[in-house]
């Protein structure tokens, strides 16, 4: 356990070297949030309700949902990609610990991004608190916490998988780009999934992404019942098992292709 804590601590310290970078990314996130607020506020000038959502519900969706999304976000797949393409993975393979466990510890350590995102988002929430609305119950809060924790793990697993594409190609950037766009779309990060056609809404409930933004926000706004929340948690757990299985298969196949010379 101490070993993993040491790794997490090293990466936490390392993240501090890039304070300015992390801070600038937060500004970028705030620009996106501001843009969404401008868009929805303008649209609500023409109609009081859009697909069953009032203006205050939509503002809450953007502000609180954005917070949920940032809490569960991580970029550690980049490190997997770098380790494979630079060949530094070799040094992990000879160590008496699995690279996957190292990856998990490192990702927890790199959570300074999340900490800073939390601070900036909470400040915005405080400033705009009069626009917020909620119908969440205590059981709803518990469901949201469980959902976000599992959402964080799902995102970690997914990033690990995308990072492993580096076993087959050096050009991994388009994979990240497409993956991030698609997962944000199915998470409801661009707009609430209620705006999608019924078929796509159903599909998104069976995928793991909606549980990082859309579904916890539905619970927060009281638009879904406890049963749907619990079912969502079950779907997330199943996805974690599926992803873990896929990771094992891809890792084994990838290692057969891995070559590192002169290290």
């Amino acid at each position: 356990m101490n070993r993993y804590l040491a790794i997490a601590n090293t990466w936490w310290q390392r993240a501090f070297n890039y304070r300015a970078v992390v801070f600038v990314y937060r500004i970028s996130d705030l620009i996106e949030m501001g843009m969404l607020l401008i868009l929805w506020t303008a649209l609500y000038r023409t109609t009081p309700v859009i697909q069953g959502m009032t203006e205050h519900e939509m503002i809450t969706y953007v502000l609180v949902g954005g917070l949920f999304y940032e809490i569960t976000r991580n970029f550690s797949g980049d490190e997997v990609d770098r380790a494979i393409s630079s060949g530094s993975l070799s040094s992990f393979l000879v160590k008496p610990m699995s690279y996957f466990r190292y990856y998990l510890s490192m990702s927890f350590g790199r959570s300074m991004h999340t900490a800073l995102a939390l601070i900036t988002r909470l400040i915005i929430l405080l400033i705009l608190h009069s626009y917020l609305t909620t119908s969440v119950t205590l059981s709803g809060v518990c469901i949201i916490i469980a959902m976000l924790f599992l959402g964080y793990l799902t995102e970690l697993f997914m990033n690990y998988l995308v990072g492993m594409t580096a076993f087959w190609t050096e050009e991994t950037a388009p994979f990240y780009n497409t993956y991030r766009n698609l997962q944000k779309f199915f998470a409801g990060g661009y707009f609430p999934l209620v705006l999608l056609p019924a078929g796509l809404i159903t599909a998104s409930y069976w995928m793991p992404f909606a549980y990082r933004y859309f579904v916890p926000m539905q619970v927060f706004l009281g638009k879904t019942d406890v049963f749907t929340g619990i079912r969502g948690i079950a779907i997330q757990i199943v996805w974690l098992f599926i992803l873990y299985g896929i990771i094992q298969i891809v890792w084994r196949r990838g290692l057969k292709k891995f070559e590192a010379v002169g290290r």
Partner: peptide, 18 residues
């Protein structure tokens, strides 16, 4: 970098369709 170029185009089309 053909596959990279095609990969980015897929992301681009997805965004537009969304």
């Amino acid at each position: 970098y053909r596959s990279t170029i095609i990969g980015y185009r897929i992301g681009e089309i997805t965004e537009l369709l969304v």
